[in-house]
Design a binder for these strands. Sequence first.
DNA 1: CGCTTTTGACCTGCGC
DNA 2: GCGCAGGTCAAAAGCG
Length: 296
Amino acid sequence: MASEWNNQSPLSLDLCVGQSPNQASAGTLEAKLSELSEENKRLIKIISTIYMKQAALHNQLKDLTGSPSAEGSFSLMRKRQIESIEMNTYDGSVCERVDEVRNQIESNLIEHSCKRIREDNKHNIYTTYTKTNASDSSMVVRDGYHWRKYGQKVTRDNPSPRAYFRCSFAPSCPVKKKVQRSAEDKSVLVATYEGNHNHGPPSPLDAANNLHQNGSHPCFFSVNSSDSTITLDLTQQEFKSGVGRAACKDKDTETMEFQNLLAEQMASSLTKDSTFTAALASAISGRMLQHLEAQN
DNA sequence: CGCTTTTGACCTGCGC
DNA sequence: GCGCAGGTCAAAAGCG
């Protein structure tokens, strides 16, 4: 998902940064901005559809369980299946794969909803996919936090070892992280986070340094086991503790609010992108010069 | 010296 | 109860 997304994403469009306003024609930039706008509209529509279906699924789960307390709990089997689904759905287009994951989760929900539900699995679980150099054997996913490795294991379904990390940012932080290379694409690191940090997020400087050192940005897609939500974050480079994220949340979230949030996130991401703002400034200044020349 | 990483042993849960 | 697989522990080694 991430690799294709990175190739197609409007956020990664080459905006001719570094060229003079004359070289980067305003027309080309306008065309790309228009294209970007259309792409964003299309994505918002897709995600809104997914969100609506997820809300329906959420209601279906409530009907099946009949108990609000059971809501939000996953059996270990479901957790494993979802992790397996996540591992197997990395490649391919965003909408197709998200739909596929949704369908698989839906079928799993129906299949297992009558089985014993574990109460101890209340941690939030989210997964990030990080594109790295395939030749890079390190299992480091830079997310701004400090992690201490406490174990490594070779699992049955993947020849690549799985590394286990604990958050060492705060002494008693319960958050754990599992990192394993994708079985299908060894250049992709799949990091699964479990639990909530009991401390504040890393400083922006730390996060920025960590995130940009290897030039890769995790593409955030997760299945949250605590509230049965699917989260697709196309812009956020941080995970749970990041300020705001484009998320498919539970039934209380209105579609319009969700779309606004998504739009804000995309706008925020673009404005934070120095290459984009530089290219935009070049385009605007170029246009202003043209306008002034036309007046003279 | 203190922190991190490595790695084999041990623990735990699940399916049969 | 047994075997398997995933997860965790903890001692030793490595590193700055």
